[in-house]
Design a protein around this nucleic acid. Structure first.
Lengths: 309, 309
DNA sequence: ACATCCGCTTCGATAAATGCAGCGGTCGAA
DNA sequence: TTCGACCGCTGCATTTATCGAAGCGGATGT
């Protein structure tokens, strides 16, 4: 799309922070790029960058504009996908931001299932904590987000919500593994490992201990659930995770913690508010909804859905 | 905005129905225009026009694209307005589709009041029947619509709703003018004039007589309320209109018809669903809401509002 | 059969964008 | 303070893209 070239260049400059750097990225000379920027500002009527001694930065007008540019670029992609769709072929790209819990089992299964039906659709997966997942949505870096306990719900339009009780994760021979359901107090009595604070599970644990006679005193904090899942084997410690990110094996098992102690985690599927998704992301969202609804059905957990626009 | 030139040309071709005609409209040669079209189709990946013996027409892909183009053009206008707004100056353009009833008094007053505050804002007013007003919204030809009894509410997002009882319009010396409230039967007993069928008032009258022992037998049908308002003077007939379009004078007066006979008309202010309005239209919508709410307050009529996004 | 209108192509002329080199300025380290 | 690095910006020659004029072949309606 050549008519978008100037807009792409503007975005590159905003990203690089300097015209010369952006020029290198985009493989043109800085003079040419500079003239395109100033030329655009002239016909736009207002400057969009403020000139600093060491480069440029978007001014408020530029922030407004860059948002438009991103929306516009992504919308053209949506149109192209719809056109491809009515030519019979389903192709396109799905970009999804998701919590780490979905990394090992859920997302790989879902994506490969979708790609079996539509091999022309490619994916990009961004593992994000709950705050930056939403940021990805508003920057059009991701079409969808599947997050545990999102933070700012302003720009986040919920497509489906599923509750999952927090599970304790431990070695199969851990004493607590004998029980079917655990109390939080018992989990915290021994050595335990918890995620770092940006994560939803940690957030829920913090809330649970607050105002009670319990305290998190983790022997290990980590931002990798995968790491923690392996670590519990070595120290006989207890970790925490939601069931969607778990699969009991011969070595590691998980047991639910009573919802009297820890509120269930909300797993939310969402998109940017008001945006019309391209065909492929919309259909993939449908598939996710269906899968999550089936999981809710199976476990009796609360779930609510909304149609994907 | 030069980078939009190709898109504008595409729209011109779609409008003109032929490349040569559009070329003349846009003051370039048909060969240049033809190359831009085919060039765009090439990089877009799909043809967007179907070639007919006597010209071209958008194919389904083109319909999708033209919708994107319109949305994109209008959104850039919105951004520009917001930028102007944060530079202190309020300027921009408001395009509004409204029912004929609002033509003589309401809209002129509202627009001049707004322009007293913001002289930089220009307006275009399109008088539309209730069906085509909504069509205007979805084609981005109008930012706002203020319509009596809209038809298809799918793309129409209601910003404010006001109920107004139908009034009978007649000469000041008409016998019925002596009463404070009229019955529909009395109005239809003598000669009466009614709007043509696309209009909301006619619609409500049709519903009222249906299934009762009354019948519309208009001595005159017209699509101009202004014309009808003058006509009642000559024949001693009764016309129908909602109060927002009326102002009693020495010659012509209006009297409400009992709501037992005719349901009140719904006067709806709306925009295209999901669209973010530019600053000027959004503020003007606010003003309209306030005025309509005050009218509702004064007459005790039902009204509901929603915030303009 | 004929004139008309259409989309599309060719080709030389024209206008626009680009690369190159260089100017003046700010900043941080020597 | 000096010096080098990096910045945005600007003339100038050159390359690249775009345009206008003319014409071709096909479909249409008279």
């Amino acid at each position: 799309m050549r008519h978008l070239q100037t807009l792409r260049l503007i975005e590159a400059v905003a990203r690089a922070g300097s015209i010369r750097k952006a020029a290198e990225d985009m493989a043109i000379t800085s003079s040419a790029l500079n003239r395109r920027i100033t030329g655009f500002e002239d016909e736009f009527g207002y400057p969009i960058f403020e000139r600093l001694p060491r480069g440029v930065r978007l001014n408020p007008a530029g922030e407004l504009l860059i948002q438009h540019i991103r929306a516009q670029t992504s919308d053209l992609e949506r149109v192209r996908g719809q056109v491809a769709d009515l030519s019979g072929e389903r192709r396109g790209h799905v970009s999804i931001a998701c919590s780490q819990a979905l990394q090992p089992y859920f997302m790989p299964e879902q994506i490969s299932a979708y790609r079996r039906e539509h091999p022309g659709v490619s994916f990009s997966v961004h593992v994000r904590d709950r705050a930056s997942a939403e940021e990805d949505l508003s920057n059009f870096r991701s079409d969808l987000a599947l997050v545990v306990e999102p933070v700012y719900l302003a720009e986040f339009e919920v497509l489906f919500a599923l509750q999952q009780p927090i599970h304790a994760v431990m070695a199969a021979d851990h004493p607590l593994a004998a029980r079917a359901e655990l109390r939080l107090r018992d989990c915290l009595a021994g050595p335990h490992v918890v995620p770092t604070s940006p994560y939803g599970v940690r957030h829920l644990l913090e809330i649970s201990v607050r105002g009670r006679s319990m305290r998190l005193s983790p022997s290990l904090e980590a931002d990798s659930f995968e790491f923690m899942r392996h670590y519990v084997l070595h120290e006989g410690a207890v970790g925490f995770q939601i069931p969607v990110g778990l699969k009991d094996g011969p070595e590691v098992v998980s047991r639910p913690i009573s919802v009297r102690d820890v509120a269930p985690a909300h797993l939310l599927l969402g998109q940017m508010r008001g945006r019309t998704l391209p065909v492929a992301p919309a259909r993939f969202a449908h598939q996710l909804q269906a899968t999550l609804a089936a999981m809710a059905e199976a476990t009796g957990a609360g779930a609510t859905g909304a149609p994907v626009r």
